[in-house]
Measured scan of single mutants.
Amino acid sequence: VRLVQFQKNTDEPMGITLKMNELNHCIVARIMHGGMIHRQGTLHVGDEIREINGISVANQTVEQLQKMLREMRGSITFKIVP
């Protein structure tokens, strides 16, 4: 398990697509080339996201998580399992 932190201070999309796997874990499905996450190089396709800013992603839908990420500003921390 590791923590990945980055800054999001604009309306620029993060450039990641999330999916739920068969165990209902949140997985990074795709990283858009040239997007914020791609430029930082901190997340990778297949990484499992456990928490966003200390909030568990368990029992949340992809749509709920994407909305939460769109609305966040400032420092964002993901707890991930590579």
Rank of each mutant, 00 (worst) to 15 (best):
M68K: 13
T61P: 09
F6M: 15
T42Y: 08
V62K: 06
R2H: 09
P13L: 06
Q66F: 04
G54M: 04
Q7L: 11
G34W: 06
R73V: 10
L3S: 11
R2T: 10
L65Q: 03
Q40S: 10
V45Y: 02
E22N: 08
T17P: 00
R39Q: 11
A29M: 09
E48W: 09
L43H: 00
V28A: 02
L23P: 08
V81A: 09
T10I: 08
D11M: 07
I37D: 02
L69E: 02
I16G: 00
E48D: 07
V57T: 14
G54I: 00
H25C: 12
I27V: 10
K67T: 13
N53L: 00
L43T: 01
N24S: 10
H33G: 09
N59R: 07
E63F: 11
M68Q: 12
N24P: 00
I37K: 03
M36P: 15
S75H: 10
V1D: 15
T17F: 08
G41P: 02
Q40W: 05
S56C: 06
G15E: 05
H25D: 05
C26K: 05
I80Q: 00
G54S: 08
F6L: 15
N53D: 04
T17K: 14
S56L: 08
V81I: 12
T42M: 14
V62F: 04
T10N: 08
M20R: 11
I49G: 00
N9R: 11
K67I: 09
R50A: 11
R30Y: 14
Q5H: 09
P13Y: 05
I80C: 08
M14S: 05
E12Q: 09
R73K: 14
V45R: 05
A58S: 11
K67N: 13
R39H: 06
E51R: 04
V4I: 07
E71Q: 09
G74E: 03
E12P: 01
I37P: 03
M20N: 05
I76L: 06
E22R: 13
D47L: 00
D47Q: 01
M68H: 12
G46M: 02
F78H: 00
V62Q: 08
M14T: 05
I16L: 15
M68E: 10
I80W: 03
Q60Y: 11
C26W: 11
Q64N: 11
R73W: 06
T61H: 08
E63C: 08
G46F: 01
A58F: 08
F78C: 04
N24M: 04
M68F: 11
L65D: 00
G34Q: 05
S56V: 09
N53K: 01
L18H: 01
K79I: 03
N59L: 07
T61F: 02
S75N: 11
G35N: 04
K19G: 14
N24Q: 08
G35A: 07
I27S: 05
M72D: 05
G35Q: 07
